[in-house]
Design a binder for these strands. Structure first.
Length: 151
RNA sequence: AGAGCUGGCCAGGCAAUCGCUGUCCCGCAAGGGAUGGAGGAAAGUCCGGGCUCCACAGGGUAGGGCGCCAGGUAACGCCUGGGCGGCGCGAGCCGACGGAAAGUGCAACAGAAAGGAUACCGCCGAUGGCCCGCAAGGGCACAGGCAAGGGUGAAAUGGUGCGGUAAGAGCGCACCGCGCAGGUGGCAACACGCUGCGGCAUGGUAAACCCCGCCCGGAGCAAGGCCAAAUAGGGGCGCGACAGGUGUGACCCGCACUGCGCCCGGGUAGGCUGCUUGAGGGGAUUGGCGACAAUCCUCCCAGAUGAAUGAUUGUCCACGACAGAACCCGGCUUAUCGGCCAGCUCUUGCU
């Protein structure tokens, strides 16, 4: 009942994402970050890539029961330190808000070359990526389940 | 009021919610609470130091840097004050600003001549020559003299005036300028409308070589130190060598494998440290023109490490620039929306 009411209220506000922006506001403790070189290497080793004009996201399932985030923001991609910091903050914030909607994946977001960072475009783009990744993961799991069932 | 100069300062504010991170407190823990959390340039990495490790008797050479003087400073290529030169009506601003009579080199084009150089046009032609004339004198411009004027150039051997002369010339004189020696003032750079001497010289260029004086060992926090799985090989001590240990097995025999234990050392992954109390900030007093220093009081003010200071919403206004710490300081340079304060200058108007 409450859920329906909420959606009804949200609906008129033209195309806000299908992922609820603020369901269970979450923190961003160290447990949900990729911290070591090994963590990153594991993802780079065998990951599914998702791309957009602004970023590339690599995803590889983990067995922790929640998603983890890592970022690679190269100095060559964004010249100014201010832009690099800004990009990381936007990515972190986006992940923080929407991590509960994500499956148990290790994600590495890689910056693409840009002159400046457009916060709104980037935020929108990231939301889209999370959705795609979550969807793809579900499909794969469904497929695996179905093959297992048929076998 | 307008135009401008110099020095200094600020870098959107407030509130709520959700996050990140250092420290402290509470808690067995999960967690909770309190509090701190980018810059004036954090930037470029161009100088100077501290701090580490390596090297090192001293001196010299090579190489590099600096370059008016005196201060300040831990030090500097920085800062302050002064000198000199240039720009501006002025407040002020700008200057790699030692040496060119040690040497070597360089200078397009133009120009007659460009370094101890020169005579194209020009001026003169007193003197000598030639011609005319009885002569006085006149003419020619051959010898020769001159560098004032024209012209070239970034630059042409000091300027003005008078004398002088055939015409001229520092040839002579006066004043200005210049050089040398002295004197005076100044710590000094340097200054002098003080004296004497010299007719007048060393043209420019040293971010060209060079000379002179002074300074400089190298590498950098991925420096360096500590703990330490794994792995290779090593050392010491003790015990044992028909033994013992491990495996198989319920156990013994048997069979298979193998010296064993401890210590030292080593150092990969990883972790800790270096890591923020410092040539520190604020205030007062004193000394100094000032940079700055001394004394006292007071404050603790980022310390991340896949790398934190953000997001959303509301609100106010002059609608917010350049931009993000990574061992730490002192400078320089470059980027930068706007705004504030102080002192001063010029112009105009009023009293």
């Amino acid at each position: 009942m409450a859920v329906v009411a909420c959606c009804a209220l949200a609906a008129p506000k033209a195309g806000s994402g299908s992922l609820p922006e603020q369901r269970a506001p979450a923190g961003f403790p160290r447990a949900v970050r990729l911290l070591t070189r090994r963590d990153f290497a594991r993802v780079f080793d065998d990951a599914r890539p998702f791309g957009s004009a602004l970023v590339t996201v690599l995803a590889r399932p983990n067995d922790l029961g929640h998603a983890r985030l890592g970022m690679v923001i190269g100095k060559k991609k964004l010249r100014r330190a201010v832009d690099r910091n800004l990009m990381k903050r936007i990515i972190r914030e986006s992940f923080r808000r929407q991590q509960t909607a994500l499956p148990a994946l290790d994600l590495v977001v890689i910056a693409k070359p840009a002159k400046r960072v457009d916060r709104q475009r980037l935020a929108r783009d990231l939301a889209k990526q999370w959705r795609r990744i979550a969807g793809a993961h579900d499909d794969r799991r469904d497929a695996a389940d179905s093959t297992r069932r048929s076998a």
